[in-house]
């Protein structure tokens, strides 16, 4: 009797449990817990601390006082900050644009069968895999005003007659850094988009070809609409990374010449750490947030429409 009752109790419990596990809300909550726990402890909490820092005049090793929007007001009056804002947008827009175009083109080129496809794909991933800290050093060496191999070959070819000052001139320095960033970012686009391209049913193209559509039309009417959601996601991520770039610039120019290549990330670091003004550094970082949120919301809205 008792045993039976106990068994029945267990059974009921188990049934209740499985019903619970079928409940979308409960299961949903349960499944996101691991991700949220990690993000809360190591991201949200320090982030709130960082947000708070931006409203204080904290310097290294000294507790700051709350100064409201003091940091933000003083930044808005700082011409360096405006220059850096301009740099960051220029850098992000140009670099992401080139990465997207070149990455897409390369993905289309690779989206066919040929010998050594695997090898070529591995080669293409290389720039993405190598630690940025190290590839930045290589670019730095390639851009050297005295030893640059690029200058050397152009001179030998007779195209120029003196060495290019890659990093000393503001425009050159910006171009040089963008090239390095594009170099690093192409694989992300290519490999991501290639995966998407391969999911497109080849019969669609065949049907279009029978209807007499040219390759450009096929691209516009079939490839682009089908790949657009993926492209949007990849572009969003790339934008975030580029916007918050730090290492490349820090290694190659340290923000010079005359702050022409400083980005939000590097300026924030420079003012917070070597400069010792934590509060101001945090405030600069906090400026990044609303802009990024805006970018993401736009792409997000776009994705929703595609749904």
């Amino acid at each position: 009797m008792q045993i039976q009752a106990e068994e029945r109790g267990w059974l009921r419990l188990r049934n209740a449990f499985s019903t619970l596990m079928e409940n979308r809300n409960f299961l949903g909550f349960l499944l996101v817990i691991p991700a949220e726990a990690i993000l809360f402890i190591f991201l949200a909490y320090p982030f709130i601390l960082g947000l708070w820092l931006g409203f204080t005049d904290t310097v290294i090793g000294r507790k700051g006082d709350f100064i409201g929007v003091g940091n933000y007001v003083s930044l808005l009056k700082d011409s360096t900050f405006w220059l850096v804002t301009y740099n960051t947008f220029l850098y992000t827009i140009v670099a992401v644009l080139f990465k997207a175009i070149l990455g897409f083109v390369l993905a289309i080129i690779l989206n066919r069968d040929f010998k050594a496809k695997g090898l070529v794909r591995a080669i293409i991933l290389l720039p993405w895999i190598i630690p940025t800290a190290l590839s930045a050093i290589v670019f730095w060496w390639l851009y050297d005003s005295t030893f640059s191999a690029i200058s050397w070959s152009l001179i030998k070819m007779g195209l120029i007659n003196h060495k290019i000052d890659f990093l000393g001139d503001p425009t050159n320095a910006r171009i040089s850094l963008i090239v390095a960033n594009v170099w690093r970012g192409i694989p992300f686009f290519t490999i991501g988009l290639l995966a998407g391209l391969q999911t497109i049913d080849p019969t669609l193209y065949e049907a279009a070809a029978i209807d007499g559509a040219g390759s450009w039309k096929r691209f516009r009417r079939i490839t682009l609409p089908l790949i657009l959601p993926l492209l949007a996601v990849i572009t969003t991520f790339s934008t975030i990374w580029t916007f918050g770039d730090f290492q490349l610039v820090w290694v190659i120019t340290k923000g010079g010449p005359a702050n022409a290549t400083h980005l939000f990330g590097t300026l924030s670091f420079q003012r917070a750490i070597p400069g010792g003004h934590f509060g101001e550094g945090a405030a600069i970082s906090n400026f990044i947030l609303p802009i990024l949120v805006l970018c993401v919301l736009i792409s997000f809205k776009y994705l929703k429409r595609e749904d």
């Binding site: 979308r24 809300n25 409960f26 299961l27 949903g28 909550f29 499944l31 996101v32 991700a35 949220e36 993000l39 190591f42 991201l43 949200a44 909490y45 320090p46 982030f47 601390l49 960082g50 820092l53 991520f237 975030i240 918050g244 730090f246 939000f264 990330g265 924030s268 670091f269 917070a272 934590f278 550094g281 945090a282 970082s285 906090n286 990044i288 947030l289 990024l292 949120v293 993401v296 997000f300």
Partner: peptide
């Protein structure tokens, strides 16, 4: 599962990505 708060949860997780490490590393 599309549970009740799945939309906001998804957004919240994603926004986590926007926070630059340069400012996180000191409190962290």
């Amino acid at each position: 599962l599309k549970f009740k708060t799945s939309g906001p949860t998804g957004l919240a997780i994603f926004f986590g990505y926007l926070i630059p490490p340069t400012i996180l590393f000191i409190p962290l």
